[in-house]
Amino acid sequence: MKVEARLFDVTTAFFFLSAVIYGFWAKEPVGIVALILTGGLSLIIGSYFHFVARRMERRPEDNPDAEISDGAGEVGFFSAGSYWPVAIAASGGIAAVAIAFWQVWLLVIGLVLVLSAVGGLVFEYHTRPNATD
Score class of each variant (00 low, 15 high):
F15A: 00
F15H: 06
F16S: 04
F16A: 06
F16M: 08
F16Q: 12
L17C: 07
L17K: 02
S18L: 05
I21S: 11
I21D: 09
Y22H: 14
Y22S: 15
Y22M: 07
G23I: 10
G23P: 06
F24A: 13
W25D: 13
A26S: 15
A26Y: 09
K27F: 08
E28C: 06
E28M: 10
P29G: 05
P29S: 09
P29V: 02
V30P: 00
V30Y: 11
I32R: 01
V33C: 12
A34P: 01
A34K: 07
L35Q: 00
I36D: 02
I36G: 00
I36Q: 00
L37G: 10
G39A: 00
G39V: 00
G39M: 07
G40V: 01
L41K: 01
S42K: 01
S42A: 08
L43D: 03
L43C: 05
L43I: 04
I45H: 08
G46N: 01
G46D: 00
G46H: 01
S47I: 02
S47A: 11
S47N: 07
Y48G: 06
F49N: 01
F49C: 09
F51M: 08
V52M: 15
V52D: 12
A53T: 10
R54F: 07
R54W: 12
R55T: 06
M56I: 12
M56W: 11
E57H: 13
R58G: 12
R59A: 15
R59T: 10
R59M: 15
P60I: 03
P60Q: 09
E61I: 02
P64A: 09
P64Y: 14
P64K: 12
P64R: 11
P64H: 11
D65P: 02
E67Y: 15
E67G: 03
E67A: 13
I68W: 08
I68N: 02
G71C: 10
G71F: 00
A72R: 07
G73C: 08
G73L: 04
E74G: 06
G76T: 02
G76F: 03
F77M: 14
F77K: 14
F77D: 13
F78M: 00
F78N: 10
S79D: 14
S79H: 14
A80D: 05
W84A: 10
A87G: 06
I88L: 02
A89S: 01
A89H: 02
A89F: 04
A90I: 12
A90G: 09
G92P: 00
G92D: 04
G93C: 10
I94L: 14
A95P: 02
A96R: 05
A96F: 13
V97L: 13
V97P: 02
A98Q: 05
I99F: 15
I99H: 11
I99N: 13
A100D: 12
A100H: 11
F101T: 10
F101Y: 11
W102K: 10
W102R: 13
V104E: 15
V104R: 15
W105L: 13
W105G: 09
W105Y: 13
L106D: 05
L106M: 11
L106S: 14
L107Y: 08
V108L: 10
G110D: 09
L111M: 09
L111V: 07
V112H: 00
L113F: 07
V114H: 02
V114N: 04
L115Y: 08
L115I: 12
S116Q: 09
A117H: 06
A117E: 04
A117L: 08
G119S: 05
G119H: 03
G120A: 09
G120C: 08
G120D: 04
L121P: 08
V122R: 07
